[in-house]
Design a protein around this nucleic acid. Structure first.
Length: 420
DNA sequence: TCTGGGGTCCTATGCCTT
DNA sequence: TCTGAAGGCATAGGACCC
């Protein structure tokens, strides 16, 4: 029998901040997105104040100030390391092949072989150890399919004192999903929710009971699979981690930018970041998208947004080469007289370095590969941005806002927590 | 003043070839 | 040489996830 469990960290970013700052415990706390734009993680206390997920920060400033809500800028270096600790802990209790790291704060595990054991006890052990080893509280949902494990986890978080919920029983499944609004299911959001409601399908049970052909014709194979998953028939297995197929790097600017020179600096920086990631996974890119946009929320300002795609003559991971191409494209899409809010790049059609095809007409010198390797090594050992490209500039007046940043407690010697 | 960043998969479409 | 059917392939865009 298939048994899946979904391990999900509770209010992950807030929980990370609380690990090294016990003062925050029981205090309403939120974490903001990049550029301090939106609210992307909330403690339970903050949730009960009515602060919604994904809301623009500035719209809730009043409530936040009135209730002394603690506010943090997002600190991905720190959260990434904490995530790694959680997954590593899991790895110490469950065979590696039975774990799928699904996102920064979630993992699916397969527990087929544990059918005879008491799964509740096992779950309790996992939960207890992860809290002890990392300081992060988690919830666990158990079910015969991934989709139902998601549902179970939701119930575990909201309606149990243990943070563990077993949804293997067929009748229990029906009862629980009949109380699940259609949009609360994994894979269904606003658009499809609206369309399903128009067909008279309003909750999980109604979707489970719907005709798969009807769903396939009106939607797609993803939703059809979901109907089966809700019926307890597993269609989605654990997925192995594979190298990325595209890498994106972009940021909103701290303030609006008008001059091409600043845009070029920002773009060069994003290309540098993306290329580092590219080389880290041993890949080369076959093309790049460059995009540039004004702030769509500023109705009072003229709007301009454009993107251009460019295919390289041969796969590359050479930062300098890609910066040159990126800057050329930027000059084409830049129009004077607009205030820009964001730019970025996507490296696409990534292939493994080993599978790189040669080119009859162009001699590809390996020397730049060595140069990039040295550059990565220096920055790894001496700290990021020890060596950088002149095109990135020095002043960086376009840098994003991060006014309430916590320390990188676990990844930077200077910022280690201090005990007095 | 202030609205994130980074991904994946699927389908429709149009062109080309058989 | 023309025509229509059908499949392959690339691409853009839409939907979803955290």
């Amino acid at each position: 029998m298939n048994i899946f469990a979904l391990i999900d960290c509770n209010n992950f970013y807030v929980s990370c901040e609380r690990v090294f700052n016990p003062y925050l415990r029981n205090k309403p706390t939120i974490v903001l997105s990049n550029n301090d734009g939106c609210i992307i993680s909330r403690s339970n206390e903050a949730k009960s104040l009515g602060i919604p997920m994904g809301a623009p920060f500035y719209k809730y400033k009043d409530i936040i100030e009135k209730n002394n809500v603690e506010v943090y800028s997002s600190n991905y270096q720190f959260y990434g390391d904490m995530s790694h600790r959680v997954m590593k802990s899991l790895d110490m209790m469950i065979p590696y092949k039975d774990i799928e790291i699904y996102s920064i704060d979630e993992a699916f595990i397969r527990l087929d072989g544990y059918g005879k054991h008491n799964l509740f006890d096992l779950s309790q052990k996992i939960k207890k150890n992860i809290l002890k080893w990392t300081g992060i509280p988690i919830s666990i949902g158990i079910a015969p399919t991934k989709t139902l494990a998601k549902v179970a986890n939701h119930v575990a978080k909201k309606n149990t004192s243990t943070g563990i919920f077993d949804l293997r029983d067929n009748n229990l499944q029906k009862k629980i999903i009949s109380n699940f609004q259609i949009e609360d299911l994994w894979g269904i959001s606003y658009k499809w929710g609206k369309k399903l409601r128009a067909l008279g399908i309003k909750n999980g049970l109604e979707l489970r009971n719907s005709d798969t052909k009807l769903i396939r014709n009106n939607f797609n194979v993803i939703l059809e699979r979901m109907v089966y998953e809700l019926r307890g028939i597993s269609c989605l297995n654990l997925e192995n981690s594979t190298p990325k197929k595209s890498i994106m790097s972009s940021r909103s600017f701290g303030k609006l930018v008008t001059e091409l020179e600043s845009l070029e600096q920002a773009l060069s920086t994003y290309i540098t970041i993306a290329c580092e990631k590219l080389r880290q996974q041993n890949s080369k890119a076959q093309g790049i998208y460059v995009f540039l946009q004004t702030n769509r929320f500023r109705k009072d300002l003229p709007q301009h947004r454009k993107k251009i795609k460019f295919k390289f003559d041969y796969p590359t991971s050479d930062t300098g080469f890609i910066i040159n191409i990126g800057k050329n494209i930027l000059q084409k899409i830049y129009k004077k007289g607009y205030s820009y809010h964001k730019c970025g790049i996507i490296l696409f059609n990534l292939i493994s370095k080993e599978n790189q095809q040669g080119n009859f007409f162009i001699k590809i010198s390996p020397s730049n590969d060595y140069l990039m390797k040295s550059l990565d090594r220096i920055n790894q050992v001496m700290g990021s941005e020890t060596v950088f490209f002149a095109a990135q500039g020095i002043k960086h007046n376009w840098k994003m806002r991060r006014n309430k940043l916590s320390s990188r407690y676990t990844t930077n010697w200077i910022e280690l927590p201090k005990v007095y």
